[in-house]
Simulated assay, not measured.
Amino acid sequence: MKIINLIGEEKRNEFDGLDYIREDNKNLLVKKDNKLVFTKCNLSLVQMKIILVCLGFIFKDDISFKPLRLPAKKFLNIIGVGKENSNYLNKEFKAILSKPIETIEEDCWTIYSWFTKASCKKGIVEISLNPELDPLLLNLRKNFTAYPVNHIIQMNSKYNIRLYEIFTSVLGGNLNFRWRVGIDEFKKLLSIENKKFKEINQMILNKINMTGTDLEIEEIGLIKQSKKVVKLVFNIVRKQSKIRSDVKKILFDAKNKRFAISDNLIKRYQEEYKEINIYEEIKKMENWAVRKSDYKNLTQKDWTEFIGEWLKRKAYGGYFEDFYS
């Protein structure tokens, strides 16, 4: 990645005590309304991870929040501070409760707390999310951002977590996107209003690291006015899965009304997206393609990226037509 100057511009059983504990965080998925993505955030690295892990334990078919209960040691291990104890969590939850969320829409502002309660008894942490956040976290079909917790849990910079979340949101269903953001808005999103550009460049821009995620930042452009940086331009690219990089082209067989896709390739998709039925989703895609495409586009288009993005959206709890209708 280089920085350059630019000229111009799953279903589950009912919660039953500790049955709600998962053995690992590999399948946890964060899914939140974009209002929460673009709200001002002044949390520490650990506080961000605490919140995102809690959000990851929300299931896509939940209609209300249920208390999250799990061993304190397990929770500490997931967020990467396994050497600490429950007193450490006590301090961090207090800090989170002192930093409310504020959403602003036109002439309306609303302030929320992330949690209504956090407690620890006999080594078991119990966490209750604020039910006022229901509309921003549950049953989301449009204007949301979703990503696996394991994409951010290994990060050691709170700015990289924030930027990954924002990059994921602005990229949407695209494979690449140039995100232009004013320097003042950028500072606000990262709660660094008092930082000068030289500091931002050293502590954030030069240290952007999306390793372990599905994104890459190929280039950062600087737009200047009178030698002063006024806008940043991020060239965001979604990494292709190994399957998509290996597959040359998938065409549509109009005669049989199906994709010309081998059983072997379907099996590879099934290995990548274990939680969904690939054969069922392929059939849905074929029906969608017939409804939405004219004959020329249907038969001549390379459907490889379409299939990959559909499956990814399905795996992340999204609804494909909300993005591609």
Rank of each mutant, 00 (worst) to 15 (best):
K242H: 14
I223G: 05
D214E: 04
K231I: 11
V229A: 09
V229K: 07
Y269D: 03
K224E: 06
V230C: 03
D253F: 04
Y279V: 09
N256C: 07
E271P: 01
K228Y: 03
S226N: 06
A260L: 11
I261T: 03
K267H: 07
V233H: 01
E271N: 10
Q225V: 07
I266G: 00
V247H: 01
A254V: 13
R268N: 12
N264A: 13
Q225Y: 10
V230A: 08
K257F: 00
L232V: 04
E218A: 13
Y273R: 07
K228I: 11
D253T: 09
Q225R: 14
N264H: 09
E271G: 09
A254L: 10
K267P: 00
F252Y: 11
S262L: 07
F234H: 00
E275I: 14
K242G: 04
E275Y: 07
K249E: 10
L215H: 00
A260G: 09
V247S: 05
Q270H: 06
R238N: 03
S245Q: 08
K227H: 13
F234P: 00
E281L: 02
Y273S: 15
Q225W: 06
V229F: 03
Q240H: 12
S226E: 07
K231D: 12
S262T: 14
G221K: 02
L265W: 04
A254N: 12
K224T: 14
N235I: 02
K274P: 15
R238C: 04
E219S: 10
K231A: 11
K227F: 12
V237F: 14
V237P: 02
L251V: 09
V230P: 00
E218N: 08
E281G: 04
R238W: 15
D246T: 15
D214Q: 05
A254K: 13
E272I: 06
E216V: 10
S262F: 10
L222A: 01
F234V: 00
Y273L: 05
N264E: 08
I217V: 15
S241N: 10
R268T: 15
R258T: 11
R238L: 04
